[in-house]
Amino acid sequence: MQQIVNFILRNKTFLLFFFLFSIALSFTIQSHSYHKSKFINSANFLSGGLYSTSNSISDYFNLKQKNSILHEENKQLRDLLYGKDTIVNQSYIDSTTYGINYKITAARVLKNSYALTNNIITLNKGTRDSIKQDMGVITPKGILGIIDNTSSKYATVISILNTTTSISAQLKKTNHFGSLNWDAISPEYIQLTDIPKIAPVKKGDTIITSGRSFIFPKGVPIGAIESFHLDNAENYYEIKVKLFNDMTSIEHVYILENQDRKTIHLIQSPNNE
């Protein structure tokens, strides 16, 4: 016993280092698996509050640009009101755009991030505004990510610029679908894999969400094909997609809640009667 105590006293610095390092490592590993990072995230009141204060100051710097975006959106809504065709650029979101099953909540980005390999975005809406895990988040131009953690006032979003996300997407022309992944190289491009060889893929084609996961409705724009090639087995295309969104400058976003989600899950779960 004496020897054990002596050993601990002699190596107490190393043991403390080892202990703290293991804690940090376990947090890291947790953060790499989907929906496990319960503890360390910027949706808590301390970091969320600080970010919202700093955001309310920095907001003034790009008011002009935001105004022009809102102006553009207003124009499109007005066109719609007066019965003009607005297929040219669908940069407005409205509860009838994607069918009646989606409830839309507007939110603002408090903290954006795009330079890491696993990027997380913080929003200013939380459980108080009935935001829950696994809701989809989009911008007027395209998809942004999926809600991960929520606190009462803030929520974090797993961005599409995150090596752990995989979102179902398809070609706009046909119904061939695949999954979107990010290779962590550039925030402008994202990879679409598992599109079968038979699909007619052309440079410049539009990629949209497929609606198969019931997080996003079908038809939310994602990006345009930049280049493509067959994978090693020569059965599927690997497509490089240029995002419509400028991920480095995002301010106003919309959170989508699928109101039929519970019913769909009930039907799909294997052990229902």
Partner: peptide, 23 residues
């Protein structure tokens, strides 16, 4: 390191790296 991690949503990477160089 831990505080920096909370603010940047990075799990525990800053805490691990900081505690190592402190050691």
């Amino acid at each position: 390191g831990f505080f920096v991690d909370i603010f940047s949503d990075t799990g525990g990477i800053h805490a691990a790296a900081s505690v190592t160089i402190a050691f």
